[in-house]
Amino acid sequence: MLVQSIITNGLAVGAVYALIGITYNVMFSASRVFSFTAGSVGMLGGVFGAILIGQMGMPVIVGFLLTLLLGAILGIVIEFVTVRPVLKSLDQHLYVLSTLAAALMIQQLTAIYFSTDAVPFPRVVPIESGFLDQKIWLPILACVGTIVGLEYLFRHTLVGRAFLAISEDNYAARALGLPEQRLRMTSFALAGMIGVLAGFSSGQLMFASLANGPLLNFYGFVPVALGGMGSNRGAVIGGLLLGLFQQTANYFFGGVFSSVAVFVVFIIALLVRPEGLAGAATARRV
């Protein structure tokens, strides 16, 4: 039972990290920008769910759709306010500062208007399954659903291919007449939806909590950095492994050890291979 609990918990937590990793990737692919907001948007998924369903008493499905909508709007606002104005000087890395500012604002507003403590998340599915609790399979389902959805988007729709084109060669895509700005905005809306989905689906596992923001921000970034930026496969595999490792270490050695271990592995891996374990070497400098 213990092994099973470690594995199921690990996979569930890992699925959340993977979703945040994908959130990073979707924004990065469209804009070459890493955004500090990924974790905070994830955190908001839980908060929105807790407010809309738990406190306001909306039906689950309405609350869920509204959460997704809010995530999309948030993504667009982030793109418009913190990314678009600094894209012209991408090499100055101003986006690190502007997205950090946005993340801080989200965190602070949540602290003031919601709560600084963890708030329980309502049950989402009314039926009970005998084998696994919904707090375990919901995030995993969300992760699988997101991957399948993205796969369909990229393989079978023209918009999806346009995303891929922009992410591979922005200049050529613009020359070809692709509406780069609109596609980038759409990407950020999509990233916002995936982010809140992560928080919503893991609401019962991790609660609606302000502290999830920085936590998800870091643990969602680890698989992306190690798996190579822009690679969703890397984010998913890395995220799941990270979740399993954390749960195991948590159980046997305690939480502090697992945090320190993840951090040390993260730093060493990046120092050895700054482009990520699966990433390609960087381009010319001169």
């Binding site: 023209l158 346009a162 891929l164 895509a173 020359a175 007449g177």
Partner: peptide, 18 residues
């Protein structure tokens, strides 16, 4: 500068975007 990760057909299709 074509999109190497896409198929030839998808590359051409992209030109018809919109």
């Amino acid at each position: 500068r074509i999109f190497t990760q896409l198929t030839v057909e998808d590359n051409v299709l992209l030109a018809s975007y919109g």
